[in-house]
Design a binder for these strands. Structure first.
Lengths: 115, 115
DNA sequence: GAGATGTGTTCAAGTGTTGAACGCGGCGGA
DNA sequence: TCCGCCGCGTTCAACACTTGAACACATCTC
């Protein structure tokens, strides 16, 4: 959940003019979810949705991170890095183990054929 | 979602005698969720819940991965490793960037004091 | 037997998610 | 100018997921 919040803020910091549909596409989630989460971020005061009337499409918003939002994003990044790193290490070991098991299985399959 | 499925299978492969409460504790999720997901895994035929009557507590099950379950677990591991690695790299860059911004901000805060 | 403890199960309530619609406003060709 | 088209944010009913607290049952201890 808060992972989507983080990714939204990351995407919007890079480009505040992204539409909700752009964000949905980029994050691989539904439009409704982007709207739902964006609303939560505005509620918390982490982003601010301002009209920018000088753009091509005047119906679109501009989503800007507030100072508090920038803080939170940094804090989330640090938190996520820790868990991602752990998960990454765990998976690396996991896959190495799977690879070994697969080799063993193939070897015994060959000796099956020689029975 | 499928991440919980994966972690369940990983935990059960290591120790099939874990109770649902053990699993909930280890994965940091609720008991109800473990039951819900375990049920889904049995439904798909990825694990099999068999009574093991020769244990101390005869009410408990033993959750064993089926061959199909072992395949799926390996497949999920590979899939997850790819995305974890990407997220890990993205976050590393992210944090480096945040660190730099923080330094810049501190430096300008100091020069503020000399005004 | 009574009670404590541990098991899997159930369920209502809450939360998150989706997909499809809606209304609106700008844009561009008749 | 008008009208259709497209992209925008919003809404909502339906669904999926999650929780916490209960429940029924089995086992062990006294």
């Amino acid at each position: 959940m808060s992972e989507v919040h983080y990714k939204l803020m990351r995407a919007l910091e890079a480009n505040p003019e992204m539409s909700q549909r752009d964000l949905a596409r980029e994050l691989g989630v539904s439009l409704g979810k982007v709207n739902y989460c964006l609303r939560a971020l505005v509620e918390r005061g982490w982003i601010k949705a301002s009209n920018f009337t000088n753009s091509q499409n005047k119906a679109a918003y501009m989503y800007l991170l507030t100072p508090r939002g920038i803080e939170q994003k940094a804090s989330l990044a640090v938190r996520f890095l820790r868990v991602k790193m752990q998960e990454y290490e765990a998976l690396k070991l996991e896959i190495e183990q799977i690879r070994k098991e697969t080799l063993v299985r193939e070897r015994s399959d060959h000796s099956e054929g020689h029975k």
